[in-house]
Structure formats: C-alpha cells, structure tokens
C-alpha cells in the first residue's frame, strides 16, 4: 500500500495527494494493474518514455477524444467513432478493453478482451496514473460497477427470426445500404451475428456514441436485435 501511495504521489503531482490516492483506490489496484498491462504491452506503451508502437501510446488517454493522438495511423473504424464523439472516459475505456469490437466496429485492436472485471479495474487504475485530470471517476467500489458490454449467454443464445429481421431491416436500409456499399454510413451487411448483437446492445446502453443509433437501438428488444443480426448476417 505504501508503495502504491508513493507511485500515486509521483504521478499525480498536479492533484492533491489524498484525493489522488482515494480515486485511484476506487478504480482498482494500480500496482496489480501494472502486471495486467503486460498483456497490453505487446502493442502499447505508457509512461515518460512511451512512443507509438503497433498501437498508440496511452499517456493522457483518460478524457481524450478517440483517435486524437496526432501522428498515429488509426483505423477508419476508430476515426469514425471519434467523429461521432467517442471520448475515452472510464466507462468507454472499460467497455473497450472488455470487448474492443463491441465499442468500435472495424478497430484494428486485435485483442479478445479482458473478461475479468478486477483485471479491467486494475489496469485502468494503472493507466489513470498517466492521465492528468481524469473525470467520470465513479463513487462506488469497482466491484459495484456493472459490466458494460458483457451479454448473458441467454441473450447471445437467442435465435433470431429471419422474417421478422427482414421487416425490421427496412428501417435500417433507409441509411445502410443492403448491398454493403458504404459511403458516409457504414456497412452492416454480412457481419458475424455476435458482433452485430454486441454492437447493438452497446448502442442501446449508450456506450457507443451516435444519437441516431442510440435512438434506433433504444427501442429494439433483445429478440429484435437477434432478428436483425440474423437477417443482415445472412446477406451476401
């Protein structure tokens, strides 16, 4: 504990030490997070010497607009999410490391996600130490936070009604072209069913930014999302 406090004090020179310790503890165990970060370090660096590698460096990631690190060549998917207003607050960061594709379709971050809530909390506590003035730090203990994009096996097991999906799809095809053409509006044709389902749930929970999609997904039931995923997944 003493060592953690020491680390926090060093890194949080700009904020009050007591406040910093308290907030850091609320997210998770930064010291343990450093160990978890080893799994990220193949692609990402953080700290005073950090540079962009396969992935961008993560200094100051909290509260930064997505894809905002000038000089890094981001994927079109994450640039689109950034244009839509994706900002790396704690909630979105947690959702992203839980399942990158749930938050950003077409991301190049080839990482299956951290399933363990404690691992996520700890690694975020560690990363937070490299951001100056993060906001949106929750009051509750990390264990009290719901998982953002994790869907129950029951939801993932719903078999979509293709015919219903075809009817519902007519609302989507006002903007998204059925043949997969994408200019200005992304293609939703031929996605793996599970990717489609988690993306729609992420919009419904308003983790993914985009007011139109949040609104459209907001009134779809679990069954309707499954029906759409089945229909669009089956299109060539």
């Amino acid at each position: 504990m003493k060592r953690l406090l020491c680390l926090v004090l060093t890194l949080f020179a700009l904020t009050g030490a007591a406040e910093a310790e308290q907030e850091a503890q609320q997210i998770g165990d930064a010291e343990r997070g450093r160990q978890v970060f080893v799994r990220c370090a193949a692609c990402h660096q953080v700290g005073p010497e950090a540079t962009d590698r396969i992935g961008p460096h993560l200094n100051g990631i909290f509260d930064r607009r997505a894809a905002a690190n000038a000089g890094f060549d981001y994927s079109p998917g994450i640039r689109r999410a950034a244009d839509d207003g994706l900002v790396w607050d704690l909630r979105r960061l947690e959702a992203y490391i839980e399942n990158p594709k749930a938050l950003v379709s077409g991301t190049r971050m080839n990482f299956s996600g951290l399933d363990d809530a404690q691992d996520r909390a700890d690694v975020l506590a560690y990363l937070r130490g490299f951001s100056d003035s993060p906001a949106d730090i929750p009051e509750a203990a990390p264990t009290a936070r719901p998982r953002e994009v994790d869907l129950t096996p029951e939801i993932l097991a719903i078999v979509g009604d293709r015919e219903y999906g075809e009817y519902l799809s007519s609302e989507c095809t006002t903007c998204h072209q059925r043949d997969g053409t994408s200019d200005g509006i992304p293609s939703i044709t031929g996605w793996p069913v599970e990717d489609f389902v988690v993306a729609m749930h992420a919009y419904r929970r308003q983790i993914r930014p985009h007011p139109v999609m949040q609104m459209m997904a907001g009134r779809l039931s679990d069954e309707e999302i499954a029906a759409l995923a089945t229909y669009f997944g089956g299109l060539e």
């Binding site: 950034a82 244009d83 903007c175 072209q177 053409t181 200005g184 509006i185």
Partner: peptide, 21 residues
C-alpha cells in the same frame, strides 16, 4: 467541427442509401 463534418458526411451516405431504398 469534427462532429459537424461527420454529420454532413453521414447525410451524404443517407442520401445514397435512401434513394437506393
């Protein structure tokens, strides 16, 4: 401006999509 530009580009995509629909 990034969001406003994205909104405009989205409208171009919508026009292409709805006229095809």
């Amino acid at each position: 401006t990034a969001l406003r530009r994205a909104t405009y580009e989205e409208s171009l995509g919508w026009y292409a999509g709805i006229t095809k629909d």
